[in-house]
Design a protein around this nucleic acid. Sequence first.
DNA 1: GAAATTAGTGAAAACGTTTTCATTAAGTCA
DNA 2: TGACTTAATGAAAACGTTTTCACTAATTTC
Lengths: 343, 343
Amino acid sequence: MSTLKEVAKKAEVSVTTVSRVINNSNKVSADTRERVQRAMRKLEYKPSRVAQRLRGSKGRSKLLGLIIPDIQNQFYSNIVRGIEDVAYKNKYAVILCNSDENPNKERFYLDVLRSESVDGVILPPIHQYGKVLDECLIEYGIPVVCVDRKLARESVDAVVVNNHKGGYIAVSHLINLGHEQIAIISSSHQFSSFDDRQNGYEQALKDNKLEVNEDLIVEGDPRSSEQAYKLTKKLLEVSPRPSAIFITNNLMTLGALEAINEMNLKIPEDISIVMYDDTPWATAITSPLTVISQPAYEMGRRAAELFLQRIADPGRAAVQVSLEPKLIVRKSTSFARDKNNGQ
Amino acid sequence: MSTLKEVAKKAEVSVTTVSRVINNSNKVSADTRERVQRAMRKLEYKPSRVAQRLRGSKGRSKLLGLIIPDIQNQFYSNIVRGIEDVAYKNKYAVILCNSDENPNKERFYLDVLRSESVDGVILPPIHQYGKVLDECLIEYGIPVVCVDRKLARESVDAVVVNNHKGGYIAVSHLINLGHEQIAIISSSHQFSSFDDRQNGYEQALKDNKLEVNEDLIVEGDPRSSEQAYKLTKKLLEVSPRPSAIFITNNLMTLGALEAINEMNLKIPEDISIVMYDDTPWATAITSPLTVISQPAYEMGRRAAELFLQRIADPGRAAVQVSLEPKLIVRKSTSFARDKNNGQ
DNA sequence: GAAATTAGTGAAAACGTTTTCATTAAGTCA
DNA sequence: TGACTTAATGAAAACGTTTTCACTAATTTC
């Protein structure tokens, strides 16, 4: 692996000059530049990004840290892809980490990323009130962009979808179809996104003078379809049985579908379903799912762009981007049965 | 961010000594070690992985490169997850790159990864005969582990599933059900995996004295469900219409399903389907899919372990691990109609 | 009891860059 | 013409580690 020194020797200039042509500083004459470039080509020289990162100043190491809950979740892999595409266009490499919603893992990776001198970190923060981001990154001047979830304070860049609205339109759709017993499979309030979706759910009920029934609100680990399976079984035993379920992410929906199938309930005849997230398989199942579609790829793209802007202008004010979710009506939701016919 | 120097000062020892306790060299007395560790804790010292990588010797930088065709493909995200879990346990960070099956992108990322001084690279090589891996990595002594696909030569570690067998059992299953007009949606021969699956397909036909009909063999971009959609339409217009299709990956299957739905054909009554890959949604669709299941996560795990072994013993002979695919019969395959009743 | 080994430590070089500072030559100003 | 800027270049320091080498004191070996 050839080095700057070797190139300098071959081109008969100093390493400083070679460095200058690499970073195309203007302070170098046309013909020395030419000579140096020829030498670089001859030696197949590629600068060491490691050395560049060690010596170079903040924000130029072309390395981006990315911590997500689980790459196996289609929703997150879409976000990742959006980020990665922008990164590639700007010659950034991406370090990917899976947090599994585990704060210890998140902490570990935050430390690693700092230690790797990344130019910045994009992540859906696990705790909206936590201070781990400050301790590990912000105090050291490392830019952070939140994606999908945001922090309680607004001093950190974030791009999210309007989760409150997402929950609201999902449930409004069900209410418009005549449903009154609407259950929700939600998740911990520590996640801003689930918190917001659930608030949207409750708001829609209230706005339509429907009672918020605690029995119909369950919370599970968003990464566990098994747990969603159990929670769904529990929900379906509530009397009177809910006529619709709003499930707040795709993974939990898989578990819910399993439970519903197992109990031989028909979608949408016996029970209507709205899933949060659109997925490739949502249209391929028995009753194609009515979903709240989130622009996941777009969200990733925007987050990466926010990051680049932050690098370009570290002083700019934090911005909160909110994208719009969209209701896509398919076949998993239908009019509520007349209550008298209900079992 | 505190440095070695600061720790050394605080602990009143040389930087050398501090370095030694970090890398727990045994050559340091119990009480100086204690003193140094206390200083590190006080200063919240975290070594710079960048500096470590620059100075340190090969294979200790705890950084692993990973190039995959597309993280949005469930199959690959499973592999990635397997790799990442092993990496995490061993305190490795992972740089993730999407090649999009584009050799230029692959090349770019290989250069980046070398430039980042990764300890090694795991990837499904795009070309089984290419020499880009040699030029970018192997010549520089950077370990490579192939996953999912392998190189033509066996001098590089690889972990794959037995794709020939996968194709063979898929088609044998169809033949056993009485199918004779069996189509395949395959992909370019440059990919060892698709090549092998197709060979398995042809072998199964031959072993059962069935003719290999070129009209029933189509090849598409494995990343494009749209293309698979078109190819499927074409296949379904062949006369006599094939009674079964073997689709060699999950993404292409989505396109195929769309085409089949659009033509109002019933699975499995009108056409039987076997998909390569098991996916979370395979069981959730109208007729749960009969699939060839690949141990993707396991494959990732094994690849990462192979990598670690290579780091531990750079001299060991290359190994080729072959995992077994499994036929999972569900509802998308059934007995072929009597030919006389066929259209 | 002298020689050889070992344990414990530190100074300085090295890794491959970028940055700072200095220097020279050439051009500009008035 | 002399003072001043500008363009082009290089020497050396710096980044934060690990590694090599050297040194001292203590221990072991014969």
